[in-house]
Every structure is written in structure tokens, then in C-alpha cells.
Design a protein around this nucleic acid. Structure first.
Lengths: 125, 125
DNA sequence: AATGTAATTGCAACAATGTTGCACTAAAGA
DNA sequence: TCTTTAGTGCAACATTGTTGCAATTACATT
């Protein structure tokens, strides 16, 4: 969990993600940055931020990838909360605190989970 | 839930998926078919089979898409069961019968869920 | 403040995955 | 058998993500 260098791209991308209340896709970030840096750099910064535990990667129900800030995982870095994906406005929201209960046969070794629920968000319902 | 025409491609692809005990990707299916039909046709057949409720689409934790047969959803077509994704052998397995318990605020309208757990499967652990 | 070095970036090129339009083919009901 | 139209192949394109390499830049150290 080491901290890399603080570059303009990294700072701006992190700011965007932290200020957003929904998860952002690479494409959305690229639009917001208005050519501040290369497409490839955004991919690399997102990877780095994820590795550093500053943001987390969400695979949406449609296969699209989004990124959201890591609120409240300063201590334990866990993202077993539910992500809600709105079919209408396409927003993806972290449902902090809502963690589904489940159990698998002991033979399975769990290291990561991804729970996505899709439907209509309060705004669109 | 109408039934489209029964073509060679459709029959073969459905057979492949039904005979497999793990979920298959487009690429894997294409390999197995050995040029029986076009790449594009496979995409279209998979879409159709999914619409007809014969197979279900799984978005893996890494964003990859796989398809698995619909065992036991003849009556109610539901796929809220957990999918286990092995990080070593890359297999994706439907954990039929294991459904996580969760609850969201009433304002959210749920229409679909995708629960993926990744780690090591019994064979790789 | 100047400097060294390793992390970071831009560019170009590539790979994988998925979509669309259109002419042609073939499944299945009449 | 004929007719209709769902399904297919091909070509072309779009999106998303990756890699190699030379140029740049953050930042620890002088």
C-alpha cells in the first residue's frame, strides 16, 4: 500500500472521483479532464489508485467498469457492500454499509466479492 | 419468451453450454465450434438464447462475460444465485441454490442482481 | 537551488470484445 | 413446393484496454 508520486493527472482524477457521489467510468473521467492527459495515462492512474487503495473498481452488471472513492475503508480495505446500478440514468452508487449475507461450502477460498443490484434508483423510479 | 427458429448454430451452441459444468465465454465457444459459424453469429445466438431464457449471462468480476445454462429456472426465471469465479483456473461456476440475503431502502426498485465471489475453487485451493 | 534517478507520461501500435448494415440463405408454416 | 422472414456471413466500425519505448518530471539527495 505504498504511495506513488503525486502528479497532476493523479491529483485531478482522484479529486473527480472523490467529489462524485456516483461511480465514474474511464470515458466519463476522460471527458471531464478535457485533454489534461492521455487516455492511456488515465488507465494507468486508475490502476495505481486502485492498488494504493484510494479508490475501488466496480464491474457493473453490464460489464462496464467504474471507479468510486474508498469512503470508510481506511482501516480495513473491504468492498463487499452492494453497488446499485440504475438502468435508466446509468448511475452506479455504492450502498455503503449494506453487505449481503451468504455462505459457500468450506472448500471455496474467498478473496473478493462483487455484488451488483440493478433496477431503478430513487430518482428514476 | 417466444422460441425462435432452430438453426444449426443455435443448436450446437446451446448443446455446448448445457453440457458444460462451468460458464463459457464467447471466445471459448468460438474455439469449440471450429468455424461452424461466424463470430458475429455467435454473439447474436447468445443474445437470442439469453432473451429466450435458455441460458443466462454472467458478468465476471474481471468484467469478462460468460454464459451458463439455466438449470431449474423453468418456472421462475431468476438468477440471484452466487457465481464463483476462480482466480487460478478462471472457471466460473453457478452456485445453484446459494442466494445471498440483503435489503435495500424501499426507494430502490430491484430488477436484476449479479453476485460474484472470486477466490480459489476446491480444485485449485 | 541544482542534480540524479526512477516513476510517470505520451505516442503509436496492437488486441480483445462487441455492434451495425446489408445482401444472401434457409427454417418452417401455408 | 412456395413464401415469408428469421437468421447468417461479411466487411467495416466502435469501444475498451494493453504494451513498448523514448521523453518528461516528481522528489529525495546533495
Amino acid at each position: 500500500m505504498k504511495q506513488g508520486r503525486n502528479t497532476t493527472a493523479k491529483t485531478e482524477i482522484l479529486k473527480l472521483i472523490n467529489q462524485s457521489d456516483v461511480a465514474l467510468s474511464h470515458a466519463e473521467i476522460q471527458l471531464s479532464l478535457e485533454g489534461l492527459c492521455d487516455r492511456v495515462t488515465i488507465y494507468r492512474v486508475l490502476d495505481r489508485l486502485t492498488e494504493e487503495g484510494r479508490i475501488h473498481r466496480i464491474v457493473n452488471i453490464d460489464g462496464g467498469v467504474k471507479y468510486a472513492s474508498c469512503t470508510g475503508c481506511s482501516a480495513v480495505h473491504q468492498h463487499s457492500h452492494i453497488h446499485f446500478s440504475c438502468q435508466k440514468c446509468k448511475s452506479v452508487t455504492c450502498m455503503e454499509g449494506i453487505e449481503p449475507a451468504f455462505s459457500l461450502p468450506a472448500a471455496y477460498q474467498i478473496s473478493e466479492v462483487n455484488f451488483t443490484v440493478s433496477g431503478l434508483c430513487p430518482q428514476c423510479a
